[in-house]
Design a protein around this nucleic acid. Structure first.
Length: 922
RNA sequence: GCCCAGGUGGUGGAACUGGUAGACACGCAGGACUUAAAAUCCUGUGGCUGAAUAAGCCGUACGGGUUCGAUUCCCGUCCUAGGCACCA
């Protein structure tokens, strides 16, 4: 009987489905294990061979854990709101829901062919009202919460209201907007509903504010910081500009410190943690007040290097600062106005592209260094960012590169305050050392100087220790149609929540998906879309990351109509034990999810603070493009080697026309009829292509579709080959020609077990030989150990080695091969199940307990020692266990090969490490 | 510029705490079976010297160091990929 993957794979997929093999349940005595894949966005292009890499790995883990006796939750669903479907809707008029449904179907078809063990009963789709009902609900919880810095957690807003009633906001320590007014209890009582609502917006975890946002005119929407790369939109690559707009925001910054601390207790790669740490960007420093000379004004600067305070020779402020006019003297007014005008006109991208250009203007007034009493000039400069720190910088040209460039350019004095920097042409090259020219700080190293300076500033009352974060609050609105409606309506321009009973707020039907002619979001087109018939609803929708920020919680209780998930369910399943996905979500999804989960934790809805216990970033599978060479100005193609040194044009050819770098010329001519009559110069009868590793993309004709691979080799081969390619975390090119190795292995396994008529070729009921046991138990040990450390590629080679070894033996016991099939089933479940049944079993292989190994079969009676002389390998020597160093030495010296190297020399030392090595030093 | 990860045969990679570098595959070469092809099986395959499956030398990006012994640890340089980037 032949191994025909196509028929057995569909058969078993059907069987597992109808026998509900993958359903997870909350009522189980077994320990739980939650394996999750990152939420896919179902794009129209479907899956290529790189996408399932992580899914296969997580599926192997899910199946392995099931064999080990865990109650496994392994769900899948779709992040279905998003730009591509909407862009398509704008172009064609087709409703994005239709496109999305089609794409989801394509994805599910493709996924189902690979044999994943997903519990499809828990599928979630973010664009369905049953789901976004709860996305909206979570938004409302965040709206009704504030961050109490005194208790260091989010609390219901009504606690804050009670405080306001009693004592106003004077003593409230909260994460709040900068512009929050200070008021007393009496004042609070005089405010009307709308005034109170506006004040509360300064505290809510989701709030409406005027902010400078990333506006992408081509997409007609604002974008989050992580959706902008180098001044262009991540999706589509359109230019992005800075614009001030009224926007819904998430008070992410309230959680900066806890998001940072939380990284210490989760098992993620250091690389990923570092990305998040950098993004949060904590810096510890000091805030200092500089009095302005001959004025009541004060400037507050933020610095991380207060130790260099005696090196300050100027102060610079951001062009956006409100203080600018007050600090500018009449003589300087024109010059400053000119400069500010120029600076504002410089776009964000220009400023980024051209970091080296120094510009600024003197304001005419002076500040007083609080430490030295010295007067120093105040400048305006566009290298100072209004949004970071206080928007005012103390210029220390001897220790800071930008200050140095600025001082050089405007010929401001440079004073060295670190020992050894005076001799340097550029003193900023040395940033640490003993302090000099620094009054009472002289002689201290920089850390001690920082502590002493802060102490001094605090004692004198002009400064205090201060922590700053680069992290910004996240913009939470999009001027788009295809997203969750924000459950808010407006009364006189003041936002109010709808009530929970009114959820879900359904996305209304509209006729066109473009923004209106007057530039309003598409939802402005909705007819009679009013709250209680009179109040307009919010017209922006939630961003793509809303639905994906909590989907892992929904899976625990996916069908619950009463809650986003019951506390019992989220508590039972707890953290995601293994989260598999790409590192590209480091500053987006992975940060936002942690934030939402923390907020829900503070408010008592989930029992754990961190959602993802362990996270593995699978690498990317790159394309391996095939290239051919055509002579310029001639219809002549040259085989790769012949093209060297020739003046040739390089063309990408479709990788499906190429086998082992040899081009099927006839197929190529069919594909590219314009070259049907071209001449092909062969090399040794073959037309060879060059190759290049690059991103898998249609434009390079290097996309390989998993469906095609499954059709040709079977899902088991695809699964094993993706794992065999190399360590999961690495990026590596896909080369279809390598797949034969895995395919041969599975066919060999089949032929070893099953004869022509489907009969077992294995012997039964005979004692298992020591050799067989040794091979089997070695394999069990390796598979378990390697799977426990997620080393999937080495497991595949272990199977191959074991099969080769078993095949070299005379007797083949069915019992041994049955164990082998269980070991194999996480990787290749279909063939394992088929052979399991053909060998006479009626149960399912995927339910079998994972084999255990017994050390007694692995023990060796001795070891074949490498014998080296002066570290160079010269011979090998078999010694029984327990041989002592002396005997080992004398036996080694008896070897001819050793004699040649030690003859006439004295043996200085003999290194004997049992079961490792014998090394003679002469 | 800063932060992080990584450089091993023609290719993907293995070597788990410093102990026989190149497992397992692909590819290639040769052979067997076959009318032929596919499939399958066998042999060889890091480089150099050599008739050699005798022996030796070199070899894990490069240059040093520690060690009896380094792909593995340390220092420096180069390269590649990722992240951040006037963040005070």
């Amino acid at each position: 009987m032949e191994y025909l993957p196509a028929s057995i794979e569909t058969k078993w997929q059907e069987y597992w489905k109808t026998h509900k093999k993958y359903l997870a349940s909350e009522s189980s005595d077994k320990p739980k294990y939650y394996v999750l894949d990152m939420f896919p966005y179902p794009s129209g292009a479907g899956l290529h061979v790189g996408h399932p890499l992580g899914y296969i790995a997580s599926d192997i883990v899910a199946r392995y854990k099931k064999h080990l006796g865990y109650n496994v939750l392994h769900p899948m669903g779709f992040d279905a709101f998003g730009l591509p479907a909407e862009q398509y809707a704008i172009d064609t008029g087709q409703h994005p829901a239709i496109t999305t449904a089609q794409n989801i179907k394509t994805y599910k078809d493709q996924l189902s062919k690979i044999g994943f063990s997903y519990d499809w009963d828990r599928e979630v789709i973010t664009s369905e009202p049953d789901y976004y009902h709860w996305t909206q609900w979570i938004f409302m919880q965040l709206f009704n919460a504030w961050y109490n810095q005194a208790t260091d957690r989010a609390e219901p807003i009504k606690i804050l209201l009670e405080v306001f009633e009693k004592e106003g906001n004077k003593h409230v320590k909260a994460a709040q907007s900068d512009s929050t007014p200070v008021f007393s209890a009496q004042e609070w009582h005089t405010y009307d509903e709308e005034q109170r609502a506006l004040i509360l917006l300064n505290y809510r975890l989701t709030y409406l504010a005027d902010v400078v946002v990333n506006w992408c005119p081509a997409l007609g929407s604002v974008l989050a910081n992580d959706e902008v790369k180098d001044g262009f939109s991540e999706r589509g690559g359109h230019p992005v500009e800075r614009k001030k707009m009224k926007q819904w925001m998430m008070r992410l910054t309230a959680y900066a410190e806890r998001l940072l601390q939380g990284l210490d207790v989760i098992d993620w790669s250091d690389a990923l943690k570092d990305i998040q740490r950098n993004w949060i960007g904590k810096s510890i420093g000091a805030e200092l007040k500089f009095k302005v000379k001959d004025s009541d004004l004060e400037l507050t600067v933020f610095t991380t290097r207060i130790d260099t305070i005696f090196g300050v020779t100027f102060v610079s402020i951001a062009p956006e600062s409100d203080l600018l006019t007050k600090l500018t003297t009449p003589e300087q007014a024109n010059q400053v106005a000119d400069y500010v005008q120029k600076a504002k006109n410089r776009s964000e991208r220009e400023r980024m592209a051209d970091v080296k250009t120094v510009s600024g203007a003197f304001l005419g007034s002076y500040a007083i260094n609080p430490f030295s009493g010295e007067s120093i000039p105040i400048w305006v400069a566009d290298y100072v960012l209004a949004g970071y720190g206080t928007g005012v910088v103390m210029g220390v040209p001897s220790s800071d590169d930008r200050d140095y460039r600025f001082a050089k350019h405007f010929q401001l004095p440079i004073r060295c305050v670190i020992e050894g920097t005076e001799e340097l042409e550029n003193p900023t090259e040395k940033k640490q050392g003993k302090m000099i020219n620094s009054g009472f700080l002289d002689g201290l190293n920089y850390q001690d100087a920082i502590l002493k300076a802060i102490e001094h500033a605090q004692a004198q009352g002009f400064g205090l220790k201060k922590i700053n974060y680069k992290l910004r609050d996240a913009v939470f609105g999009r001027q788009r149609y295809w997203g969750e409606p924000i459950p808010v309506y407006y009364k006189n321009g003041v936002p109010f929540l709808i009530s929970e009973e009114q959820l879900p707020l359904i996305l209304p039907q509209i006729s066109h998906f473009k923004p209106t002619e007057s530039g309003e979001p598409p939802l402005a087109r909705a007819q009679n879309w009013l709250h209680e018939g009179k109040y307009p609803y919010e017209q922006t929708t939630m961003p793509g990351w809303a639905g994906s920020s909590w989907y892992f919680l929904r899976y625990t209780d996916a069908k619950n109509p009463q809650a986003f998930a019951s506390k019992d369910a989220t508590t039972y399943w707890g953290q995601v034990d293994l989260y598999m996905g790409g590192a590209e979500h480091a500053t987006g999804h992975l940060l936002y999810s942690r934030f939402w989960n923390l907020a829900l934790y503070d408010l008592g809805y989930v029992a754990h603070a961190e959602p993802f216990k362990k996270l593995i970033n699978q690498g990317m599978i790159q394309g391996r493009s095939s290239l051919i060479y055509k002579q310029k100005n001639a219809e002549v193609f040259l085989s790769h080697k012949l093209s060297k040194g020739q003046d040739c044009q390089e063309l990408h050819v479709d990788v499906s026309l190429v086998t082992n770098d040899v081009l099927d010329v006839e197929a190529f001519k069919k594909w590219r009829p314009e070259y049907a009559n071209a001449e092909f110069v062969l090399d040794n009868g073959k037309f060879e292509c060059a190759y290049q590793v690059e991103k898998m993309s249609k434009r390079w004709y290097n996309v390989v579709n998993p469906d095609e691979v499954v059709a040709r080799y079977g899902a088991d081969t695809l699964r094993m080959y993706e794992m065999f390619l190399g360590p999961l975390e690495y990026s590596k090119p896909w080369d279809t020609s390598g797949i034969d190795g895995v395919s041969r292995f599975l066919r060999k396994l089949w032929r070893t077990c099953i004869g022509r008529e489907g009969e077992s070729l294995l012997s039964k009921n005979q004692p298992i030989s020591d050799k067989e046991n040794k091979i089997l138990h070695n394999l069990i040990k390796r598979v378990r150990e390697d799977l426990d450390r997620f080393s999937f590629n080495t497991v595949v080679s272990s199977y191959m080695i074991a099969l080769n070894e078993l095949n070299s033996l005379e007797s083949k016991q069915q019992e041994v091969f049955e164990k082998f099939l269980i070991l194999l089933s996480p990787f290749a479940p279909h063939i394992a199940e088929e052979l399991w049944h053909l060998l006479g079993n009626s149960s399912s292989v995927i339910d079998q307990p994972f084999p255990m190994y017994d050390d007694k079969y692995l023990k060796e009676s001795g070891f074949d020692y490498p014998v080296s002389v002066n570290g160079k390998l010269r011979a090998s020597l078999w010694l029984a266990n327990g041989t002592d160093a002396e005997t080992a030495l004398s036996q080694a010296l008896a070897l001819d090969k050793v004699q040649t190297w030690v003859e006439g020399k004295t043996i200085k030392k003999c290194v004997f490490v049992p079961n490792k090595i014998l090394n003679l030093v002469v």
